[in-house]
Simulated assay, not measured.
Amino acid sequence: MTREVALRRENKDFDKFVNDSIARYARCDWGDTCDEDKMTNDYAVKNNDRILAVYKYNDTTTIWIITEWDRSVTTVLFPSEY
């Protein structure tokens, strides 16, 4: 995860949100991702493409979880850090 996300995890509620989001991601629950992107992610899991999921903490805070096509790295970040 990025430094900014890690720093925000000092807040217990946000930390729980991040942990829950990662667990959902591991179950192929793509969160607040649009339907078309959910289908793209389902395809990507089976065909080694890049995966990007969206999870909204509240009206002003969203995280993205991105896994690269070769599965070499998964990153949790704020959209503004992309």
Rank of each mutant, 00 (worst) to 15 (best):
T75M: 01
R50V: 11
E81S: 00
A6P: 07
R71D: 09
N19H: 05
Y82R: 03
D37F: 11
S72E: 15
T40R: 15
A26L: 06
E68A: 08
F14Q: 07
L52K: 09
K56M: 12
I63F: 05
A26E: 15
E36I: 11
N41Y: 10
W64C: 01
N47R: 09
T61Y: 05
N19W: 09
N41W: 12
D59Y: 08
W69R: 13
R50P: 07
D35F: 07
T40M: 11
V18D: 02
N58G: 02
R71W: 13
A26F: 03
K46N: 08
I22D: 00
V73E: 15
W30L: 00
E36W: 09
I22V: 07
R71T: 09
Y43V: 14
D59V: 03
D29N: 14
R8T: 02
K56G: 06
D29I: 03
Y82T: 00
T60K: 11
L7K: 15
E4F: 05
A23K: 13
V18Q: 03
V73W: 12
R9V: 06
N47I: 09
M39E: 13
T61A: 07
R27T: 04
Y43G: 13
Y55I: 02
A26Y: 02
C34T: 10
K12F: 06
C34E: 09
V18A: 00
T62V: 14
A6K: 09
E36M: 10
W69D: 11
N11T: 06
Y43I: 15
P79S: 09
T60S: 12
K56F: 05
F78C: 05
N47P: 08
I65N: 02
V54F: 06
Y57D: 00
S80A: 15
F78N: 06
Y55N: 03
A44N: 14
E4P: 02
R9S: 01
D13G: 08
D20A: 14
D35H: 13
D29R: 06
A53F: 00
N19E: 07
D59M: 04
W69P: 00
A6C: 00
D59R: 04
A26Q: 10
V73L: 14
T2N: 05
Y25N: 08
A44F: 09
C34F: 07
E68N: 11
D15E: 10
V18P: 05
Y57A: 02
D29T: 02
T40L: 14
D49P: 11
F78S: 01
R9F: 04
T33W: 00
E68S: 08
R3A: 12
T60L: 05
R9Y: 03
W30I: 05
P79L: 03
V5P: 01
D32L: 01
E4A: 12
K56A: 08
V76L: 02
D32C: 08
N58K: 02
M1H: 04
T74F: 05
N48Q: 11
E81M: 05
K12V: 08
I51L: 15
N48T: 02
V54T: 06
W69K: 14
D13R: 14
A53H: 03
K46S: 11
D29E: 11
E4R: 00
G31Y: 04
S80W: 14
Y43T: 15
S21W: 09
I66N: 03
I63T: 07
K46Q: 10
E36T: 12
D37S: 08
A44V: 13
I51A: 03
T33S: 06
D13E: 11
E36V: 14
L77Q: 02
V76R: 04
D20N: 15
N41E: 10
D59L: 01
R8S: 10
